[in-house]
């Protein structure tokens, strides 16, 4: 990965980040090697100021774990997370609390992420109390009102005394956004923030996040399984498969010119809201394997139509920059990029 450019603008720099969960299944607890689930297995990316990085992938690919690592809700197994140049992967105690002031998270389910017994005022004020921000109660209320207005809950005064059950799904998610904004964070991780919302409400919440990015220049890590949503929200997209980033680049580069066979399949599988659209069939076989028994070599080879024996099943392809700003982890990426024919092996390795 290019280390030198954009040094000043980079807010979050992740290098070779790993998270292994140890499994204790039955007798393995006592005998032999412990078994690991390699949820995140060596990923690297940068998030620049004012940028939305979309992290997409199927369920179980490690995208949520990545988000939780960045907010330090999980402790990384290895690797570094540089926040404004400072490694936060090993922070503890006071320093960690200070970091968490700068980093906020928006969760998937606004029905679960708000305390049903807290009013909107109490919910949004809680971060201020935890971090001791605002001198008087009135100051705090003012900040809460400002945050609610930023989240387009206007007039904010009307919402202060309401409980979550009095709000619609979209309004709840806006309260969750206000709660994240009230601390004026420098980085927000949004984990599937719109997947629980209906279409008519979803567009409003997505627009709100884009407007906030424009207004305050807050970078987002936007985690989603919905590629159409990721395209709408993101400046750049990173595609994850079994704990690794397989492709990363400018949004429309990745969407219209995918170079990794997995990304190609993923994008061709997305249904398009147009009855005239004819889309090709997905070429990949089977389903995402369990992250406990990872295949050797490239993780995607058992399902890949281009897999070659002796190469793909032995050597793990690194993430390389194929074109400017377009990274791909595939042995044939350069050939795909140059438009060269790569022979398909019908049943090569299956």
């Amino acid at each position: 990965m290019n280390e030198e450019n954009n040094g000043g603008d980079v807010v979050v720099k992740v290098r070779d980040l790993k998270k292994y969960f140890e499994l204790h299944v039955g007798m393995f607890k006592f005998w032999g090697e412990p078994i690991y689930v390699k949820a995140v297995d060596g990923i690297s990316f940068d998030i620049r100021k004012g940028e939305v990085l979309g992290l997409v992938g199927e369920s179980g690919c490690g995208k949520t774990t990545t988000g939780r690592l960045l907010t330090r809700l999980e402790d990384p197994t290895a690797g570094s997370i540089l926040f404004h140049g400072k490694d936060i992967a090993k922070l503890k105690g006071k320093d960690l609390k200070e970091y968490r002031k700068n980093v906020q998270m928006i969760f998937q389910d606004p029905y679960e992420s708000l305390n049903p017994r807290f009013t909107v005022l109490k919910t949004v004020m809680e971060p201020l109390l935890i971090h001791g921000i605002g001198d008087t109660y009135e100051d705090k209320v003012e900040m809460v009102i400002k945050a609610l207005e930023d989240a387009e809950l206007k007039p904010a005064e009307e919402y202060l005394e309401r409980f979550p059950h009095e709000l619609s799904g979209g309004q709840r998610q806006r309260v969750a956004i206000a709660r994240a904004l009230v601390l004026r964070p420098q980085f927000i991780v949004a984990d599937e923030p719109v997947s629980m919302l209906d279409v008519s409400i979803r567009a409003g919440v997505m627009n709100l996040m884009l407007d906030l990015r424009d207004k305050y220049g807050i970078p987002f890590l936007f985690i989603t399984h919905d590629i159409a949503v990721a395209r709408y929200m993101s400046d750049r997209i990173a595609v994850m498969y079994l704990g690794k980033i397989v492709e990363m680049g400018e949004t429309d580069d990745v969407i219209f010119n995918p170079l990794h066979p997995y990304t190609k399949a993923l994008i061709s599988a997305v249904p398009v809201p147009d009855p005239d659209h004819k889309h090709g069939r997905v070429e990949i076989k089977g389903e995402i394997p369990s992250p406990i028994n990872l295949p050797p070599g490239c993780r995607f080879w058992p399902r890949c139509p281009y897999a070659q024996k002796g190469l793909c099943d032995t050597k793990d392809p690194p993430l390389v920059e194929v074109k400017e700003g377009h990274y791909v982890a595939c042995h044939f990426a350069e050939k795909f990029a140059a438009g060269e024919e790569v022979p398909k092996k019908e049943s090569a390795l299956a």
Binding site: V229, V272, P273
Partner: peptide
């Protein structure tokens, strides 16, 4: 108008005001 697509140009989506 509120539905994002991976096809065509990226346009700003229009939310439907209010709720059902």
């Amino acid at each position: 108008k509120a539905f994002p697509s991976i096809k065509g140009e990226k346009k700003r989506l229009k939310a439907i005001p209010g709720s059902p």
